[in-house]
Design a protein around this nucleic acid. Structure first.
Length: 240
DNA sequence: CGCCAGGTGGGAT
DNA sequence: ATCCCACATGGC
């Protein structure tokens, strides 16, 4: 199995820094002129708007292409709903209409309100929040599972945690030649960050997840992987 | 058309 | 614990 460090370096050479999380709206996007990706910017969100937008996006993108989520975030922003109280003030029907394009819109409307209520009650939405939600707290909320919890922790709060998604599992399974449990994936990738400063860990984990997604989309597709143009095929047992 | 997308909760086994 | 399914839109 390829060393995590090597994999990270290869991904970086192949795709360059991705600059996740993508920010869709202008408001709260301090220090940047443009919307979208901000390569080499791994700062913790500097406004409540941006932090909340990231958390909302983490829920809206559950099993959903990001392009379907973009429009929702723009619609929510236009409605002034990237704000905990304003979002909670919307009727369910209105909120559902605003996020329709992300799919599962009835479930997701409920999830967004659950998240907003949780942030509001605990003051986590404030940038000056004294504390960060724990993983357990996030997981206890209806609609937030492991990937969403870890995405929120990493990209909205800057907590150095690994985000494991379907791309990560598929790529590592093909590299190894067999499925890995999430526990095994965490153990395997831990050497890429251990012993490093938190700031450094945050940068690596930001990029690693983004790079798995990029490689998964462009090379390691589920049905028909493009192994001919894959930069890590020399290390790979797949596809299978 | 059918398949897939940066999952999750709930119920059955 | 582990499978199985519902949830839903939009792009290729």
């Amino acid at each position: 199995m390829i060393e995590p460090q090597t994999l990270y370096q290869l991904f970086m050479e192949l795709y360059g820094p991705r600059g996740w999380w993508p920010v869709v709206t202008d408001a709260g996007n301090q220090g940047h002129d443009a919307k979208g990706y901000h390569p080499l910017d791994y700062s913790i969100p500097a406004t409540a708007h941006r932090r909340f937008e990231i958390a909302l996006g983490a829920i809206l993108t559950q099993n959903t292409a990001w392009r379907n989520v973009r429009l929702c975030l723009e619609s929510l922003d236009e409605a002034g709903a990237i704000d905990m109280q304003r979002l909670l003030a919307l009727s369910d029907e209105r909120l559902e209409a605003l996020i329709r394009s992300s799919g599962y819109y009835r479930q997701k409307a409920r999830k967004l309100k659950t998240l907003a209520r949780f942030f509001l009650e605990n003051g986590y939405g404030e940038v000056s929040a004294a504390s960060t939600p724990s993983r357990e707290e996030l997981l206890s909320l209806w609609g937030i599972g492991e990937e969403t919890a870890d995405s929120i922790l990493l990209y909205a709060f800057g907590v150095p945690v690994l985000v494991i998604d379907a791309y990560t599992r598929r790529i590592l399974a093909r590299l190894k030649g067999e499925e890995l449990s999430d526990r095994e994936i965490r153990d395997y990738l831990s050497s890429a960050t251990e012993g490093k400063a938190v700031k450094q860990q945050r940068r690596i984990l930001n990029e690693f997840h983004a790079l798995f997604v990029e490689h998964g989309k462009t090379r390691c597709a589920k049905r028909s992987p493009d192994c001919d143009h894959c930069g890590i095929k020399a290390w790979c047992k797949g596809p299978f």
